[in-house]
Design a protein around this nucleic acid. Structure first.
Lengths: 83, 83
DNA sequence: GGAAATTTGTTCGTATGTATA
DNA sequence: TTATACATACGAACAAATTTC
């Protein structure tokens, strides 16, 4: 069940991005809702904040999340994604 | 007199924690009283609020202070500390 | 009572340095 | 050299409880 393989071939931040993508796709993190804070993700996966942010940058680049200062990171509904 | 060595071997937040611990031990910040606000400590030591809070987190972890929202950070008397 | 200021709590944004492969 | 990962530090904005006027 180890979602992150620290000795795996893929970088941690990319593995983490995949995990978060799956959780969004599976509705674990529902649309228009906040995902856990960067600090919470650091704790859950036992990685640094920089690594969490590297993963989140991938999801933001895919238009899956939108970070807001002082609020959190929100899941963007698929319908709203730019074609 | 430089209580904080910005180029020292220890991180600023840990040095600041030591300074505050000394002030509590010396009675500069008496038991059951408030220590200066985070903003005041930022000004006095010329560090960011995050750094002040990192130092205060250390003291809180040691049971030396207790922060209260909207009120301030209070010094816990040694007699009250759990043995 | 009410509005404004104060104070701690939380969260993301950015930058730098260190270490490793 | 580049990419990865962690630690540190400052900045900004928002939130909630309390105090002050």
């Amino acid at each position: 069940m180890a979602e992150i393989d620290f000795d795996g071939p893929d970088p941690i931040y990319r593995q983490l991005a995949d995990v978060l993508k799956s959780r969004i796709g599976d509705g674990v993190y529902p649309p228009n809702r906040k995902i856990p804070s960067e600090a919470a993700l650091c704790s859950e996966f036992d990685v640094s904040r920089n690594t969490v942010r590297a993963a989140l940058r991938i999801l933001a680049g895919l238009g899956m999340v939108r970070p807001v200062v002082g609020r959190g990171v929100f899941v963007i509904p698929p319908e709203v994604k730019e074609p």
